[in-house]
């Protein structure tokens, strides 16, 4: 007679199943830590980058941004105080003599000095 033929075999197997179900499952703390670290890492990869970071990346990183800023500053400076060797772009365009920004500023300062002196 094998176990399957015994009247209480069903009860025995069920008892073993029940005991196994009730047996506590040990979840190591470091496993939980690793799982949560994975969750944070995946979430960080999914998070959109800030706008400034997206612009920087679109331009090609910090070196490209540095070059762009330097070129912009140089362009503004050349516009404000063009070297004497260069022709005045406004004169070339309009065909007339125009005053430079520095001249305008100088005139303004003279006017202001005259007003202060009179008062």
């Amino acid at each position: 007679m094998n176990m399957a033929d015994k009247g209480d075999d069903h009860h025995d197997l069920e008892a073993m199943f029940a005991a196994a179900r009730q047996r506590p499952v040990d979840v190591p703390n470091d496993l939980m830590a690793r799982v949560l670290a994975d969750a944070d890492r995946i979430a960080a990869m999914r998070r959109p980058a800030p706008l400034w970071q997206q612009v920087r990346d679109a331009l090609g990183g910090w070196p490209a941004v540095g070059g762009l800023v330097a070129a912009s500053v140089a362009g503004v400076w050349i516009g404000v105080a063009p070297p004497s060797a260069l022709p005045d772009p406004a004169e070339l365009f309009f065909g007339t003599q125009t005053s430079s920004v520095s001249d305008t500023l100088s005139d303004g300062f003279f006017d202001m000095a005259a007003i202060l002196e009179e008062s």
Binding site: V25, D26, V27, L31, L36, A39, D40, A43, R46, R47
Partner: peptide, 20 residues
């Protein structure tokens, strides 16, 4: 999925014992 890490912790607390 919307960035709540506490939800990930709660979900892990529920699933890990069964999966283990």
């Amino acid at each position: 999925a919307h960035g709540d890490s506490a939800a990930a912790k709660e979900l892990s607390r529920r699933l890990l014992p069964a999966l283990m």
